[in-house]
């Protein structure tokens, strides 16, 4: 800080200093030059600092920047957006995908039930999910976490996330896959500041990847560690891209946005089972419409002793666990 001419050291013990001289009404030519030079130097330093931005090529188009929220898009705008995405994917991966905007069906509320007696912890569901939903291979993003739990406890701190034995199952343990529970009272939706994530009428909590600002508040709010953030640009080998895509489902994501399990909307809203269910070799996974009293899941919920994880947080999951015996 400058010391105006005439000012002396200030100290409680010193006599009152002479009053400082006024600042010049207009700056002298010299100080003006000096001031401008300083500012110019500062601006130059900043510009130099920004140099790495030259490598920034993938921040999306103007259309993407201006794109409105999912719920504000008219059908016409939506089809423009979908074909734009198809073009972008084609440019990036060399194949033209089929991107649809699949809406929730009337009279459907999806529910998942998982039989812990049957699950052997083979992680086939984890990998099928990655392939179906175009998750990044590097860094690896996986929606499903399988915990290896010692018999006799539900304390997840005792679970092993990184088990890798020669073969599964191992005696003395049970395996508990966890993915998005599609909560009826989802804290992730409540906290999102820009409504980039919401619950559709069929009970699936979806994310508008083109609207999410990447604040990761939802990730902090989710009690089931279901959300995954794209910390860097995802990489998917061209030949492994699943070209059957939906906007709120498995369209390729970009860095800086959130994603998570969406019960394979590109499949389930078209009458198919989720990929994780289809691949499961033991039949531990059951999926269906809870509003239909004859569906398998309705029967399971009626006749089995089912439970949900962390019932006390009040999220009302649509993902139930049960044991056969």
């Amino acid at each position: 800080m400058p010391r105006p001419p005439g000012a002396t050291d200030m100290n409680e013990n010193l006599p009152v200093p002479p009053s400082p001289a006024p600042e010049p009404a207009s700056m002298s030519r010299r100080s003006f030059l000096r001031g401008s030079t300083v500012m110019a130097a500062g601006v130059a330093a900043m510009a130099a600092g920004l140099a790495p931005l030259r490598k920034l090529g993938d921040f999306g188009s103007v259309d993407e920047f201006l794109q409105a929220h999912y719920n504000e898009l008219s059908p016409d705008q939506m089809s423009t957006v979908l074909s734009r995405i198809e073009g972008e994917v084609q440019r990036q991966y060399g194949v033209r995908p089929h991107v649809r905007d699949l809406k929730a069906m009337n009279g459907v509320e999806f529910v998942y039930a998982l039989n812990l007696t049957r699950c052997t912890g083979c992680r086939k569901c984890v990998h099928a999910c990655v392939e179906e939903n175009n998750q990044s291979r590097d860094p690896a993003i996986e929606y499903i976490r399988v915990l290896k739990m010692p018999n006799g406890t539900f304390d997840m701190e005792k679970g092993d996330h990184n088990y890798a034995p020669e073969s599964v199952p191992e005696p003395g343990f049970f395996y508990m896959p966890v993915q998005c529970h599609q909560c009826k009272n989802p804290p992730c939706v409540k906290v999102c500041p820009v409504k980039a994530t919401w619950q559709d009428p069929d009970g699936i909590t979806v994310i508008d990847y083109n609207w999410c600002i990447g604040c990761r508040y939802c990730e902090a709010a989710c009690p089931y560690f279901a959300r995954r953030f794209n910390f860097s640009e995802p990489t998917i080998p061209k030949e492994q891209l699943n070209t059957n895509m939906s906007y709120l489902g498995n369209q390729p994501r970009h860095k800086g946005v959130m994603e998570k399990c969406h019960f394979c909307v590109q499949r389930t809203r078209a009458g198919l089972y989720p990929a994780c269910l289809e691949v499961c070799p033991t039949g531990a996974r059951k999926f269906g419409n809870i509003l239909d009293p004859h569906s398998e899941v309705s029967q399971i919920l009626k006749h089995k002793r089912v439970f949900v994880l962390k019932e006390e947080v009040g999220t009302l999951p649509r993902f139930f666990y049960y044991f056969d015996v």
Binding site: P193, V194, W211, C212, I213, G214, Y217
Partner: peptide
């Protein structure tokens, strides 16, 4: 923010502001 270029989504009326639901 992961997508600072989308900051405008946070501007009331212009974006889609989750008020009063979100503490953010």
């Amino acid at each position: 923010l992961g997508r600072p270029d989308r900051f405008w989504h946070l501007i009331p009326f212009l974006g889609e502001f989750n008020f009063p639901g979100s503490m953010l």
